[in-house]
Every structure is written in C-alpha cells, then in structure tokens.
Design a protein around this nucleic acid. Structure first.
Lengths: 239, 239
DNA sequence: CCCGGTCATTGGTCTGATCACTCGCGCGGT
DNA sequence: ACCGCGCGAGTGATCAGACCAATGACCGGG
C-alpha cells in the first residue's frame, strides 16, 4: 500500500513534520471536523506509511498545540478548535519571555485590553457586570497577595470575555498566565502598588457602569501602562 | 538513581507532559539559556527516568512550540527565545480557524496593526520607508495575484517591524500566515477589491511619509476593517 | 598548511512488546 | 424482561532496543 493521494507525494523535511502538516491539512480542509475521532494511532500510522513512533510525536505536537486531544483508552479527537483550545499554548510564550520581551508583551496587552475594556463598556450585561463587581470587592476585602492576584486575573478576564471577542480574550488569557503575572507582580506589589491598583480597578469599573467606552479604554490603558512603565524602569536599573 | 530535586517529586499527569513541564521550567528558571545545548536525548531521558520515546515526544512538542531546536547529528538547543521563535506556531491558529473566528482574528489584527502602523509613522527610518515603498510599487506594477499577495504581506510586515515592537510584529506575522491570507484573499480579490486595496495602501504610505500617526492608525484600521466587513457579510450570506 | 576521508556522536525512524485506561457486551440475578 | 456488574477487546501510554542519517572533529596524505 502506498500513496492514496497527492498529500503523501512530496517527501520533504522530516517524516514527523510531514505527518504533522498532513493532519493539520486534513483539519484545515474539513476532512476532520471538530469533535471527530481520528483512526487509531496504529491505523493512521499505517495509512500514512510511517511508524507509530513518528505518528505519536506528530499527535503529541498537535495535542500540545490544542488542535487534537487524546483520551487514554478511547481515541484521539479533534478539539472544538475554539479560540481557547488553540491559544492555550500561547501562555508558554509569556512564561518563557524575559527582559525587554516582557515589556513588549505588556504593550500588546495594553493595546488589546484597552480595546476589550472599551467594548465591554458598551456591551456588558448585568450578570457579567455583577461578576466583575464581585471580584472587585473581593480584591478590596483582603490583603492576601495570592487571593488578590487571583481576583485581579478574574476581574480582567470577566471584562475581556464580556467584550464579545473570544479570540481576543483568549490571547489576553495567555498574556496573563499565572506564572507571568506572578513574576511581574511579585516585585510590583512590594512597592506599595496595591492601593494604586485598586484605585485603577475602581476607575475601570466606574467606566463600565457608566457605559463609557472611551473612559474605559483610557482607564485600562493607564492601568496596564503603569505596570509596563514600572517594568521598563526596573529593566533600566538592572542594566 | 532517583529524584535529584523537587522537580521530579510530583508524579502528576502523563510522563511526557511532566517532562515537557520540567524542561520548560528549566528554561524559565534560567538553568538553560538561549542557544545552549541540552544533554543528548539518551542522557536526558536517563536523568529524568523516562524512556527515550517519551523524551522525544516532549522535545518534539517544545520544538514545535519554538522553544527548542534540534539539529540532526549535532544536538538539541534552546532557541534564542525571541518573539519570532515562540510565535511562529501562532500561525497554526489562523490556519485552523474558520467562520466567525476568522472575523475575530481580523479584529485582533485590526487593533494591533492600527497600533503598529501608527507607531511606524513616528519611528520609521529612511531605509525602512524605502522598503515599504518598494513593495507598494511592486504591488501596483503587476496583475499577478500571487505576486500581489506576496508584496502585500511584505508591505505590512515591513511596517509592523518598523514600529519597534518585535513581539507585536511576530503576532501579526502569525495572523497573516500565507494560507490564512490566501484563503480570505482569494474571495476578496475576485470582487474587484484590488484597486481599493491599492488605494488604501497608498493612503497608509502617505501617512507614513507625512509622519502622521493618527492618519496612519485610521488608514490601517480602515484597511483591515474593509476585509473584516467583507468577510462578515460573506459569512452572513452563507448561513 | 590545507584538503579529504574516516568515524564516533547524536538526532531520526522503525519495530514490537507491555502496561493502563475505556467502554460495550454479555452473563447472571431479580 | 430488566438491571447491574464484571470481564475482555480495543486503544492510547510507555518502554526497550535496533538501525539509519547527518554532523563535526580528528587524522593522515598531499
């Protein structure tokens, strides 16, 4: 048994990479839909004429990327290909970035979060607003930094998703991965920035309540900008 | 030989996933610096007490993600961890997204590219501007769609990197992956949108020459917005 | 001193076996 | 006839070992 069609024709690069591209292509072309189950690793390996090892490496890579999901004892499935699935691995970028790149990531966050916050001011509904308020209150009624951090994340997360663009929200989730925020925040808070942060959060919340997109945009940009500026200065010092 | 330190202590999840996390942690904590070479797969597998297969799957996943790079016959190395390395895989997201998600991705691009274009208007130097002009001229002196597409990509790419934030530019590279643009553009051009695109590009270029960030921002937003709007309408029709 | 080949090292691939988890089939009790 | 439970086939997860292929340093000849 050899080539079934043109997909196996060009023997370029490594075997595993080729398999990755083939599976990716099958998904992109709709031959494999969201939620659908793939043939068994053994069958698929035989079909594409590669060993099971190579097939497994390909599946593992695509799983890591969020395109596939393998359930032990059941089979390999295509994910829903939702923004959250595919962008989960985006957090790794934030975790592995350092120095000037962290500043650049904060700039990206500043731009995107300004937008989501402005959109949220126009679109947020009562239930979502209540959730935002809940995290705001929780953040002001404790001094436990871990708890504050958790509610800080949830506060922005709720706003981001209220903006209606799940893809943008998923990217922001990645930019605010737990380890990323923890690394930056650790130092930021030590300089008594907690009160300022609370004030900025209240300002963002006020803009949401007032349904004022422009104020919301400015408040969010200023909020992220404060952290960005602090990080920028810390980098300049350490040099 | 067993646990060398606390990293191997928690036997959670699958073996491969644990190895992935361990290597990631080693990089994040600076035990492995950019460009540094890792022990051989065989040694590393023995050190962590896993089979070479599992180790290879882990390495493959991190390679796919852009954190590692393995050179046949030489060894496995940590990449420079630059924005381009880590965000290359971001293009997969664009390739696998469909329907409403494409619109959301274009919204993200609209927001980010508005920013980079505005920044470029303030920061671009003579050499970079010349490159932008070159692609603009090339785009206007041919009717070959493939060539136009290539110069279109290069046009925006040059502007994005001229803005100075490589991370943001790398994200935009991912959002403009060849297959993504080709899929959307194919239909877009067929409606005689080429002339309009050229006009919009000229407008962006004019704003750059005039060092006018606000005009540049608006021109870029309008440019991407046109495509976004077209895609939105096409989706509404097909439903 | 330079060039070319040689060979140990190392990633790439394949094979086959075994373990661990799922799920459905069928047996047995009610 | 129905329900519950156990068992076994199917499938992914892991391991072990072998061989192939690319690399790069070392060494001998020119």
């Amino acid at each position: 048994m050899e080539d079934l069609d043109a997909r196996t024709a060009p023997p370029k690069g490594t075997v595993t990479q080729r398999v990755i591209d083939q599976i990716k292509a099958m998904i992109a072309e709709g031959l494999l839909g969201p939620g659908q189950r793939l043939p068994t690793e053994r069958d698929l390996a035989a079909q594409l004429g590669v060993s099971r090892s190579s097939m497994r490496e390909a599946v593992r890579a695509l799983t890591f990327m969020g395109a596939l999901e393998s359930r032990h004892g059941s089979g390999v499935y295509v994910t829903q290909l939702a923004a959250g699935d595919l962008l989960e691995s985006f957090g790794v970028v934030a975790d592995l970035s350092r120095g000037p790149q962290l500043v650049e990531l904060l700039e990206v966050r500043k731009v995107l979060e300004s937008t989501t916050t402005a959109l949220a001011a126009a679109r947020i509904d009562a239930g979502q607003l209540a959730e935002v308020e809940q995290h705001l209150l929780a953040m002001e009624s404790t001094d436990d930094t871990e708890e504050i951090l958790a509610h800080d994340l949830a506060f922005h997360r709720a706003i981001n998703y209220a903006a209606g663009n799940d893809t943008m929200a998923a990217v922001l989730d990645g930019l605010s991965s737990r380890t990323f925020r923890a690394r930056v925040w650790r130092g930021y808070q030590e300089e008594g920035a907690i009160d300022r942060t609370r004030r900025e959060h209240r300002r963002i919340h006020r803009a949401l309540v007032a349904r004022d997109p422009e104020s919301a945009r400015i408040a969010a940009a200023a909020h992220v900008g404060e952290v960005e500026q602090w990080l920028r200065e810390r980098l300049a010092e350490s040099q």
